[in-house]
């Protein structure tokens, strides 16, 4: 009897804690957004974070994009040619990259490459009291540390996603046209005929911006909220990668429903 009561109490307490955390995260998000002017005023700090989040992720993003595109080219051709639609390879590859794979896979890579680094960095700064020190120097760590990292991520992410998609299309071109021998003109022509800048590409960009915000927010929040110990920081880093990845996939579904269902041109 008492064990049931304790169990229930534990579940209740856990739920309350989780809800309180969500509340804190929301408050944190508002606070970060309010610090935006500070981050923009000192663009140098944000540029630094674009360097860390974007430039350093460049190689992994471009190489992955190339390979994903090449695999799509092979697999896609394999299936399409069965239905006599090998000519549609460009459409298939372009649409899947621009609409889904570009933002999503780039987002997942971004979460594990840059998100975890941001969390670990802020978490360690907290552990070594650098955040407290900053506060005591009358410098708001939200403005000096958190906001530039957040905006750096938000700016870097869509660019990375676009690079990923571009490299993917190029990879599919290499495999499809150069290797398999789909006609060059057909590949590009069909792709252009059925992929529209608006809404296909713009929606992809919107998705990547949303993912960038989600990943960056989760990363800075987990770092800021990390328990100031070595285990605390490592747990927070794990939570960033897992949480951000789940957030990307869930948001992708929601956004896809909103973006592509209402337009009647699936």
């Amino acid at each position: 009897m008492t064990s049931v009561a304790t169990g229930l109490r534990r579940v209740g307490a856990g739920t309350l804690r989780a809800i309180a955390r969500v509340g804190f995260a929301a408050r944190f998000f508002v606070a970060v957004v309010l610090q935006t002017p500070a981050a923009l005023r000192r663009i140098q700090l944000t540029a630094r974070e674009i360097y860390f989040a974007g430039v350093l992720s460049l190689v992994v993003i471009m190489v992955s994009g190339l390979f994903v595109g090449m695999v799509l080219g092979l697999q896609g051709y394999d299936v399409l040619v069965k239905y006599g639609a090998g000519d549609s390879l460009g459409i298939f590859v372009g649409l899947s990259l621009v609409r889904e794979l570009g933002p999503v896979v780039a987002g997942l890579l971004f979460a594990s490459r840059a998100g975890s680094a941001i969390t670990a960095e802020i978490g360690l700064m907290k552990t070594t009291e650098q955040l407290s020190a900053m506060e005591m120097m009358a410098v708001d760590p939200l403005a000096r540390i958190v906001a530039p990292r957040f905006w750096g991520g938000v700016i870097a992410m869509p660019l990375l996603a676009a690079l990923f998609s571009a490299m993917g299309v190029f990879g599919a071109y290499l495999v499809g046209v150069r290797l398999i021998g789909v006609d060059d003109g057909t590949f590009w022509g069909n792709m252009q005929a059925s992929i529209d800048f608006w809404p296909d590409i713009t929606n992809g960009i919107v998705k990547s911006i949303v993912f960038g915000m989600a990943v960056s927010l989760i990363a800075v929040f987990e770092g800021y909220d990390a328990h100031p110990t070595a285990e605390g920081v490592s747990a927070a880093t794990t939570r960033t990668v897992v949480g951000a990845s789940l957030a990307i996939l869930a948001l992708d579904f929601v956004l896809t429903v909103f973006m592509f269902r209402g337009l009647g041109n699936t």
């Binding site: 974007g54 460049l58 372009g94 621009v98 869509p158 660019l159 990375l160 676009a162 690079l163 998609s165 571009a166 490299m167 299309v169 590009w188 792709m191 252009q192 005929a193 992929i195 529209d196 800048f197 296909d200 590409i201 992809g204 960009i205």
Partner: peptide, 15 residues
């Protein structure tokens, strides 16, 4: 590079 990729997507991949 990022913007070049977006332009590439817009002009070459899209219409």
């Amino acid at each position: 590079m990022g913007f070049a990729a977006i332009v590439f997507l817009a002009l070459k991949v899209g219409n």
